[in-house]
Design a protein around this nucleic acid. Structure first.
Lengths: 335, 335
DNA sequence: TGAAATTACGAAAACGTATTCGAAAAGAAT
DNA sequence: ATTCTTTTCGAATACGTTTTCGTAATTTCA
């Protein structure tokens, strides 16, 4: 392994000078800096990250918390795409990412401990149970944090515009002539609140009344509750003519249940999803949904987090909205 | 930050003793070891990984190479599931994972350089272009490596039994009465060779002749080539009665093309996929496919790699087969 | 020309750990 | 009681960087 010392010997300068030259201190003359950089490249020098990290106490490493209790965090297209965005952007800015967990080997660690252990400079949190104590500890710690699709006070947060998304979908259904619109929503998080707001606002704006019994709770990214909710809705004496699902995945559950009941989409009931995962455009019938720019959400998160890390004073906490796009399919018919 | 020194002071022993006690040296009496461990826990001691890594020259960190040129590595359910398995198993054994890339910040790095930079103890490679020079350099390096779904001589490799998978699917079609069976295969890799072998072997075993024009090249995990291949096959004067696709994703391409041609599955043509991603069981009609145990593939890879890292002498290079399972759907009809 | 300011560099200490080697203490054997 | 072995511990060094601070050399200014 070739070190700073080897370079210093070859260049006839001190190790200190090499370090400074490589890190762009103004302290060094142009010529020696050039010489050092050149020989470093020639000798295939790779800095020892452990030594550097030991000294500087930062690692150029971001922690990501992506796995929820249903263990489907990574395999879900929406989150996988976000992760990919995070990864790409972080790489561009010179950071690697590390998955955070609550155990390493036989030790039990909290997320925060794992984070400290790996010396993560910051953390990105998505797709977890935000009421989990261990998660909250992490958020409240001194470690720079960005949350995705969930907002804490005074913490950077990135999400798509959920009010506008739900509004757009609702408006579309209304314009297609629907009046009996059901809304299956996810767990009551800040995201859900916003979507509900968008839904109610659209209904109100267009003078369509909301039936309380049409608004039922399901779960994000889980087909099972959606199946139940779908059956419950369609077995009413006056079933809805359109159902809005929490997301594209959970819609799949609904689809299966509808099929089982001998109902077809959109002939018997119109449906819309949410997320716009690649799959949704490939489903038959093509799903009408609201496309969230997951890649951009990931990139923005990484960028904001790194900004926070590197400019902790000037960087202020904010909620960043990434705009999405309404995506028309064939899952809604005109009534 | 609390260090080994703090503990030593509190326990009235030397830092060396603390280090030994914490790392289980036989060098230390039971009682002091106990004392040290207890106070370490009490004081919430978290070892400084940078210092340790600097000294021992290993990081308890695995590199993973998962992104292919189509940039869909992570968002593909099959690979996402593998990654998840790798992650879980690695965590259990006390390792974290880091994504390898070819650039970090403004520097251009080879995978190998990135690996050295992050001091990865070993690497898991999947879903990449294995003919890429930078990948080959990495494989040929001294760094312990496990490849997934691709075998190099003398390198640990994990894959499902592709011969058996293709054989099972082919046999199923034959038993359903099909004789004109088309086989769209992926790029000519070692995996493809094995699947072709399974296909030919089954056809031969059951005395069904293979038509050369029915064996065409597509691409793994890419719907586009499959669309083309599908059209080409179905426009023949004597089209096949069954089509085997490289994987479930690329089958989706075929499905779209068939629909466009006004053909429906399985009435007009029977199809089978490969992989058994969760989606395939949710598609209509439910896809007949060969389920690869992606989670297990990931876990086995991690376990084997860590075995190699920790017992480099005794651990021998081998090709590990993870058995899959035939999964019947409704996409094949009896003729 | 002399003093002051600037530039360019190096010596040295520090980061927190692991590990070698020697020494002291305790126990065993004679 | 003496020697020999075993057990238990600590002093010291090294890992490869970064960074402070001092100093020598050079330039600027009055």
């Amino acid at each position: 392994m070739i070190t700073i010392k080897d370079i210093s010997r070859k260049c006839g300068v001190s190790p200190a000078t090499v370090s400074k030259a490589l890190n762009g201190y103004g302290d060094i003359s142009e010529q020696t800096a050039e010489l050092v950089k050149r020989t470093a490249k020639e000798m295939n020098y790779i800095p020892n990250i452990a030594a550097r990290s030991l000294k500087t106490n930062n690692s150029h490493n971001l922690g990501v918390l992506f796995i929820d209790e249903t263990m489907c965090g990574l395999t879900h297209e929406y989150f996988a795409t976000i992760l990919n965005g995070v990864k790409d952007e972080a790489e561009k800015l010179g950071y690697d990412i590390t998955f955070l967990s609550q155990s390493l080997g036989n030790q039990k660690l909290s997320f925060l401990e794992h984070c400290r252990y790996r010396k993560c400079d910051g953390v990105i949190i998505a797709s977890v149970d935000f009421s989990n104590e261990s998660v909250i500890d992490l958020v409240k710690s001194e470690i720079p944090t960005v949350t995705i699709d969930y907002s804490f006070d005074n913490i950077n947060c990135v999400m798509s515009d959920n009010v506008e998304g739900a509004y757009a979908l609702t408006k579309y259904l209304i314009e297609k002539g629907h009046k009996r619109i059901a809304f299956i929503h996810g767990e009551m998080t800040s995201v859900t609140t916003k979507r509900l707001l968008g839904f109610y606002r659209a209904m109100s704006d267009y003078g369509v009344s909301v039936r309380d019994s049409y608004v039922v709770e399901g779960k994000y990214h889980d087909p099972i509750p959606s199946r139940k909710a779908t059956r419950q809705l369609m077995e009413m004496e006056e079933p809805p003519t359109a159902i809005m699902y929490p997301d594209d995945y959970s819609y799949l559950g609904g689809m299966i249940e509808l099929e089982k009941m001998g109902l077809s989409v959109p002939e018997d009931v119109s449906v819309v999803g949410y997320d716009g995962i690649p799959m949704s455009s490939i489903l038959r019938p093509k799903l009408t949904t609201y496309y969230q720019d997951a890649d951009k959400i990931g990139r923005m998160s990484a960028r904001k987090l790194i900004d926070k890390i590197e400019n902790s004073k000037t960087c202020i906490a904010e909620e960043i909205k990434v705009s999405g796009k309404f995506a028309e399919g064939y899952s809604v018919k005109t009534v």
